[in-house]
Nucleic acid binder design. Sequence first.
DNA 1: CAAATTGGAATGAACGTTCGATTTGATGGT
DNA 2: ACCATCAAATCGAACGTTCATTCCAATTTG
Lengths: 200, 200
Amino acid sequence: MFEKYNKVQRAVLETTLNIIIRKELQATSMSLIAKESGVSTGNIYHYFQSKEDIVNELYKAIVTFNGEYVREGLLQGRTIREQFEAGWNRVVELGQKYPQGFQFIEQYSFSPYIYDEVKQAVYTDGWCGPMNKLYEEAIQQKLFIPLNPKLMVQMHYGTLVYILKAHLQGIFELTGDSVQEVIRSCWKAVQLADDTITER
Amino acid sequence: MFEKYNKVQRAVLETTLNIIIRKELQATSMSLIAKESGVSTGNIYHYFQSKEDIVNELYKAIVTFNGEYVREGLLQGRTIREQFEAGWNRVVELGQKYPQGFQFIEQYSFSPYIYDEVKQAVYTDGWCGPMNKLYEEAIQQKLFIPLNPKLMVQMHYGTLVYILKAHLQGIFELTGDSVQEVIRSCWKAVQLADDTITER
DNA sequence: CAAATTGGAATGAACGTTCGATTTGATGGT
DNA sequence: ACCATCAAATCGAACGTTCATTCCAATTTG
């Protein structure tokens, strides 16, 4: 997740993510980060400008990592339908394999603590751009109804985020089958009516 | 929104909501709440036990308000389809008419700062319970596919939350028509195949 | 005038950040 | 093989500020 950083930076970022999810941004003090990461406060400031800088760097790193992970999935599919399924499956995998990073992005994507410039990274380094493209193509090929593709992507992302959230909160179990069912229903929600036959 | 509170409590809660959305929980200090609400710190502590208490009270108040608002909408529909549309329309209205309350609940529903007991209020005073019931009925009447109703409610809530979030962030406009289209597509996503004829 | 309410200065703890001292490890001269 | 040198890395105590909370005097209410 933090390959491009050195040992100290990695320890700090990992620890910070850990504490923020476990406690709160409010309760995430520099002294606690120092204690848990094994890096002294003085040394932390050798590698980061400020606490804000740490949190924003963390945000950027996770968005980039998630972006690569999902884009890699998109490449696996040949047809639009396959890309659709592979892409959203990767999003769900992210939520399950890296729940802390997933929760962090979710909780702070609307926080004023994250700089606007860093938030924009979702479109440049994240997976939003390629996914929007895929939806545009699906509309052109008359697979999807003619709605704003960005709106549709948000819809489907929200769908998955919320079943993952509820799952992480223990409201219900999430089997591989039910995930597939949800992704299929996402397709069904926006598919053009006369495409119904190709649907299993 | 805060009808059951007195003048001082209302001023404090409204101001707190305002600052938290504008700045951050971290940057929401008691002195700032005092200054902006026109209530002295001493007096705030006369009506609230602590800062945590204020924020949790705020959370509870908004959940209860939102719950009443959506349940009221559910009552307007006669058929299941009508209740479905009326209910989700109310959710969207909440996000548009009371964006601060909406954003606050969204941002802090997973925060450790909110007591678990207060979070449970979503089910007792909120709209999750009645909405789950509606979905169960829709499954029994063979209108919906046989999936976990709680999962489906979360799916659809996520859908609407994310188009509202994107709209509030200015990513795209949200017309009344596109909202209707989204709600219809939510129904389509989970409807049982042989129900297609009744569909417009 | 008693009780309830209000105001804001005072308090002590905790916070983010700074800074000078110390350690480390690579380099080159003997 | 040994040591001298030095810049980079590391440390944690210290600093000044800000914070949530308390306390009590002042004011209002009934």
